[in-house]
Amino acid sequence: MSEPVIRMENIVKTYYEGKPNELEILHGISLAVNEGEFISIVGESGSGKSTLMNIIGVLDRQTAGTYYLEGYDVNRMTDEVRSAVRNERIGFVFQNFNLLPRANALKNVMIPLMYSEHKRKDQKERAMEMLAMVGMEERADHRPNELSGGQKQRVAIARAMINNPAIILADEPTGALDSKTGHMVMDLFHKLHEEQGKTIVLITHSQELASETQRIVTLLDGEIVSDKGGER
């Protein structure tokens, strides 16, 4: 069996380490996600799912345990390499979109290219291609404040996809959307998964949304309490 995209072994995360208010959020999480999987991590607020997401996304460091991303030990990476990994191997989709307000849709999609070490000449074409994939090519010159929530999230997905990452990490991607646009966004994830075989990790508190995925990992008080297949 080939190396999983994500392999976590006994991940522990403790806040305020060594202080009186020391708080352990994750109590030894072990998780493996294979290439092409569409997995959801579900849990109530306070269950530690956001903390886990931050570690998966190389935004935060675990206190203990090992995390291999595509076979590489993330803990041994320098700050610069972690930046490069976030830039090229992980595509982030945030609940609040996190688009830059002063840049138009096209510019927002191009940001990861700007920070990439691998310069490409067809930056604009590539970004337009991504916008077309999410059906936003006609809004390329619109700024975020001229877009609806659903449109913003589609731009964000185009941005996440532009460097062809190993995984798409979506943190409550429909949380700020009404159910109809939420479904449209979910459909887009399914499309990426089915047509392009993307590995997608969806973090949500909604069982309903999670049930759409292949595999549901349920988190409770910093521990995985169940790991089972979804309805699809």
């Binding site: 930046s83 976030r86 460097n163």
Partner: peptide, 12 residues
């Protein structure tokens, strides 16, 4: 904004 840029791969 700085956080978003860093998350998207901007080095320090």
């Amino acid at each position: 904004e700085i956080g978003v840029r860093m998350a998207l791969g901007a080095k320090r």
